[in-house]
């Protein structure tokens, strides 16, 4: 085994994952299962956004739109094409990738805040379309009665966890490869990357396609867990929550935003009693965390584990 595989972070990660994976099987608490399944879905979404935002610096606000369309296509592929819910998750991933390709190409001309505004308008447009074509989408009420992935919540927990682990492993591999290195490079300076032979357009679009594929997967998981989907999937709340997850967890690390998903979702659950003030509190928490840990929670954890070591 390589020296890298035995690093303290890796060992700690395996132990935490093993305990975590055993927890629902031991307790069987359906409330906890429900929360964790949703966390898995959002963690996939947050990690997949990181390859676009954290790696290539494209400040997209349309990631939840792709997630939403993935969710709808998953439902349609089950209802109209008779696909198995598990297969529909991959259909959602493919739809996400295609949308990512389109959005990636469309957005090449835009940067910074303008890119955010354009992609945000895609989210708003998606909501309008979902409401307008209610005969296909169910409008605000949504589509119901979509067959679930499995009858047992424990099985859905493990399937969604497997998807989350696979997403993180694949995105980490990409992030640590030459592709990831060049993505990080062009985030710092596109001109600097271009003069070294890096096809900036290709890498930016590639990040969109990869990230959107996993956003679609998250959408498919959502539909096949909830058993339906509606126009509300395009609500801005989801996007705001996703941004908080990304920022709090630590962008540009893949695993950080996934950790952020746990923090935000669990905080959300424990703070249910202050319902309408939750977002305000989230904002305050984000400011405090970023003030104390500018590299996010994951960056802080890494510093603790690798203190004294040079990376």
């Amino acid at each position: 085994m390589s020296e890298k595989a035995l690093s303290p972070g890796f060992v700690l990660g395996i132990i935490v994952l093993a305990i975590y994976a055993l927890y629902p099987a031991v307790t069987g608490d359906s409330y906890i299962l429900r929360v964790f399944i949703l966390i898995h879905i959002f963690a996939i979404l947050a990690a997949s956004m990181d390859i676009i935002v954290g790696y290539t610096g494209q400040l997209t606000a349309g990631h939840t739109a792709i997630w939403g369309w993935g969710a709808f296509f998953s439902a349609w592929s089950i209802m109209y094409a008779g696909l198995h819910p598990f297969a529909s998750i991959f259909v959602a991933g493919a739809v996400g990738a295609v949308l990512g390709l389109g959005i990636g190409i469309l957005c090449l001309r835009f940067r910074y805040l303008l890119l955010t505004l354009v992609t945000f308008s895609i989210l708003i447009l998606s909501y309008a379309l979902a409401r307008h074509f209610a005969q296909y989408t169910g409008g605000e009420l949504g589509i119901h009665g979509v067959p679930e992935l499995a009858s047992s919540k424990i099985i859905i927990f493990y399937v969604s966890l497997a998807f989350l682990v696979a997403t993180i492993v694949i995105l980490q591999m990409i992030g640590r490869s030459e592709i990831g290195l060049r993505m990080r490079a062009l985030k710092d300076t596109e001109e600097g990357a271009k003069v070294l032979g890096v096809d900036v357009v290709k890498y930016k679009v590639m990040a969109n396609v990869i990230g959107s594929f996993f956003a679609g997967i998250a959408g498919g998981l959502y539909t096949t867990y909830i058993g339906g989907v509606g126009a509300s999937i395009f609500f801005v709340d989801h996007l705001l929550r996703l941004i908080l997850m990304w920022g709090i967890g630590g962008g540009g690390t893949i695993i950080g935003p996934a950790i952020g998903a746990y923090v935000i979702m669990l905080l959300g659950e424990y703070l249910r009693f202050i319902e309408e003030y939750r977002l305000i509190l989230f904002g305050i928490v984000l400011i405090i965390i970023l003030r104390i840990f500018p590299e996010g929670i994951y960056g802080f954890i890494r510093k603790l584990i690798y203190r004294g070591e040079r990376h």
Binding site: E178, L181, R182, R184, A185, K187, D188, T189, E191, G192, A193, V195, L196, G197, V198, D199
Partner: peptide, 20 residues
């Protein structure tokens, strides 16, 4: 460049591994 276009958040070694 006059004002260098380095990848500031990459290490020196990583900077030299970016070229295609």
């Amino acid at each position: 460049f006059q004002i260098t276009r380095l990848f500031r958040n990459l290490t020196v070694m990583e900077n030299t591994m970016v070229p295609v």
